[in-house]
Amino acid sequence: AKSNSTLGRGLLSLLSQDTLDEATWEEIEDTLLLADIGAGPSAELVDRLRERVRVLGTRDPGTVQALLREELLALVDPQMDRALNVDGEQKPAVILVVGVNGAGKTTTVGKIARVLVAEHRSVLLGAADTFRAAAAEQLATWGSRVGVETERAEQEGADPASVAYRAVERGVQEGTDVVLVDTAGRLQNKVGLMDQLGKVKRVAEKPLGGRPVDEVLLVLDATTGQNGMQQARVFAEAVNISGIVLTKLDGTAKGGIVVAVQRELGVPVKLVGLGEGADDLAPFDPEEFVDALLR
């Protein structure tokens, strides 16, 4: 396994030393920084930890390690409900998937469809990315891979909102369990594109008779640094995010930015992406996530 400490030592070995000195505290902060937790939150965490250590009067590195894990876990909040909201009273449940360019939206739609199909639900995909070259084909390939149909525009450049509308409308007519709507990647500082996304959501809700979509999933790439926060804020403002999917956790990035994102938005990370295959999707596990951060 690769070491993620700059100094190649790793936090755990450091904490197994028998004294707590300044260097140790610095190393703890470094570990958090390297996981993309962010400078502000990392400093706060270390301060809080120092205070607790002072109050407890402990000098035992093992205790400090346990406290750090505990603090992080509390931040990630294991109590949050992380289930996908697909079992509402009314059919279809509609899931809208949004995020910046290349984050892993289309792949995630394919993987979620796979899970839902395995649970014997009927699923329909909506290709509301009418912009990127071959985006609809990519989604349709995923659809056929997992055995579900894809509603798509006749031609490239069509109105994404109307594709979303048609997918949801078809889901209503056919009594589909879940409609998954893929959207085009967009950077959050593009006002026009963010407005368009708001419209996609509003129009997709029309066939639902005033009921909002059941889930809006923000897809965040685990390699994302501090900009992830800005992504979360602006997307949440545009379409009211209900859950986060953290992709590409199979790489070396830790995805620490989601800690701050979750706290800011008050919505949970629900799923993690662990590869490019159809089965590389897993529920978010707070303990696993925290242990990986500290590794």
Partner: peptide, 10 residues
Amino acid sequence: DAMIGQDAVT
């Protein structure tokens, strides 16, 4: 990607 964080080095 300009949005990448600490993983850029690795």
